[in-house]
Nucleic acid binder design. Structure first.
Lengths: 327, 327
DNA sequence: TTATAGGTTGGTAGCGATACCAAACGAAAC
DNA sequence: GTTTCGTTTGGTATCGCTACCAACCTATAA
């Protein structure tokens, strides 16, 4: 920057200003600076800028698994909002482990991110301490926390699962199996299980533990879970899968066995991905506004950074049941 | 850090060393520092560290679309290798536009990333200039570039498409349609198209332009493309889709119309995602080592940062044909 | 003409770490 | 006891930028 200033015949201060708030600098100066910047292809060092101003323009995002296409829409939305505001995104993987989350939070705070989005609402003690002490705006998402650290943007896993279970009963299904993703260290899965049982109780249906199966999230696991459920309960008339891959895996299994869906068994899924809409038959599911969650999260962060008061915000973006051919 | 030093009764220099290279500090000092660090929950400011040492531990990754699950495996692999080496990942979206890529590169260089991975091998003039001048290690991927900026890790889109087309012919298919993703600003798509025609020429089959259809990457677009191809060429006996979503969209369309696959028409896809393996029938496809590409890219960057000589490396990780039920 | 204000420009002092060299220390050799 | 060498510790300058305030314009009003 010193060089640019020299070559433009102005002070470094003027260069800095011309780049950050062009309006505060006379047209003549701005032209000189711009010319020199272009000539030398100068790129301001944001590291130095951040250190000096103790402001940064990087937001950290921690997701349980980058690989999971579920988060892709949310990540994209966050990324877009940030970019529109001249900010950047760093991503880390917590792999469903609270320790890894803690490490990622520490690393991000060390990088002095200006905001954090955590796809998780239960944290280790040290994670909460670090976050609270840092004063960095935090968004929690993935579930609606009882005691948010700062801000939360999500939907209720409990209500969503409950609603779909009631929906299946309304369609006449009496024996509804539920296949959940692993429950360990995962409050979302736990909430969903609770929602399922709450619905059964309301319906006066027997809340049989053997109707719930835990499965890792692959196609074969979905197929396998379906088969095990049907073997244990030959009168099963609906399967509700807490993940689109599980559901489609089960659907494929039905195709292989020649079982009519929904004639022999109905299949319902979680999350509205394109695949479910185009599958044959198309699959009934819960639409979770993933992108909207990402968008709102980023917007709340941006607002806070632009001076909005630091108040605990809790946004429930809801969900929707999408009835299709499979139920 | 000054505070920590005071409370530990040592100099700031010793704190800095105790944190970065514990071996260079006596046990006594290290213990004092560690105690103070723990007591105050001190997190070193990496921004200041980077500025001072003019080293950073952040790698930038630019992909055409975060949303596309294709890149997810690669991103995950990059992320894991970096984390294992104490580094971090920033992600940006180029949305298939060279201007957006240029903006992202400028932003990342401004952030003084220590390495860059670009999922693209054609760039704007200014992008190349910036990268070359910056001296930052760069990996290009997604295709094998003729004139790499620095390092390249990929496979050959041309060879892969050619090989699958030859494979379909070997299975007895004579009239093979090809559905490509949009060609604009996308050298990968262009290479694939070339590979397809090269195979037809080798086979002595007529290279009919109307056998190639351009389609955006959705399920309906795949279904639609299949229908249009069959209408134009009633004797079409195979469809090769340059994207798994397109292929499965076409497969679903066959199911809806009751067309036997591969009896009435064979379907081949690009990229080996789980969906293709579990679909009914399972789909023949090209296995592209996406994860391996991510892993190698990150490893090459890490090696370079650890002092490996700055030589132009070009790694071809190849591909594999996965023959399944659909052909 | 001088005072006053508003708008620009420049100088100086950090931001919080690390690089580099000098000082202090301790152990081994004489 | 002194010298010497190697290791550990500390001081100072600096990384490249921005915050803050002082100095300087130019124009308008008194």
């Amino acid at each position: 920057m010193r060089d640019i200033a020299r070559h433009a015949g102005v002070s470094p201060m003027t260069v800095s200003r011309a780049l950050r708030e062009p309006a505060a600098v006379s047209e003549k100066m701005r032209a000189k600076v711009d010319a020199a910047v272009r000539e030398f292809g100068y790129l301001p060092n944001r590291i130095a800028g951040s250190l000096s101003s103790s402001r940064s323009n990087v937001v950290g995002l921690i997701v349980p698994g980058i690989r999971n296409s579920l988060y892709a829409g949310m990540i994209q939305a966050v990324s877009e909002v940030l970019r529109a505001n001249g900010m950047h995104l760093m991503i880390a993987n917590s792999g469903h482990s609270l320790e890894d989350e803690e490490a990622a939070v520490a690393a991000f705070l060390g990088q002095r991110v200006c905001g954090l989005v955590l796809h998780n609402t239960t944290h280790s003690k040290r994670t909460r301490e670090m976050l609270e002490r840092s004063g960095v705006p935090v968004i929690e998402t993935g579930n609606l926390p009882d005691d948010p650290i700062d801000m939360a943007v999500s939907y209720s896993n409990f209500e969503a699962t409950r609603a779909m279970t009631l929906h299946l009963a309304r369609l006449g299904h009496r024996k509804i199996g539920f296949v959940t993703l692993p429950l360990r260290d995962n409050d979302r899965s736990e909430e969903r299980r609770r929602g399922y049982f709450a619905a059964l109780r309301e319906l006066g249906l027997p809340a049989d533990d053997s109707l719930v199966l835990e499965a890792a999230g692959g196609f074969s696991e979905g197929a396998d879970a379906l088969v095990r459920l049907v073997n244990a309960h030959p009168d099963l008339d609906a399967g509700f899968f807490a993940g689109e891959v599980l559901a489609v895996g089960a659907l494929f299994e039905c195709q292989r066995r020649g079982w009519d869906v929904p004639g022999r068994i109905a299949i319902a899924s979680y999350d509205d991905v394109d695949l479910l809409k185009h599958a044959v038959p198309s699959v009934t599911t819960l639409r979770i506004p993933r992108q909207e969650i990402g968008r709102r999260s980023a917007e709340l962060l941006v607002q806070r950074l632009q001076g909005a008061p630091a108040e605990r915000v809790k946004v429930d973006l809801g969900f929707e049941i999408v009835q299709r051919e499979s139920t």
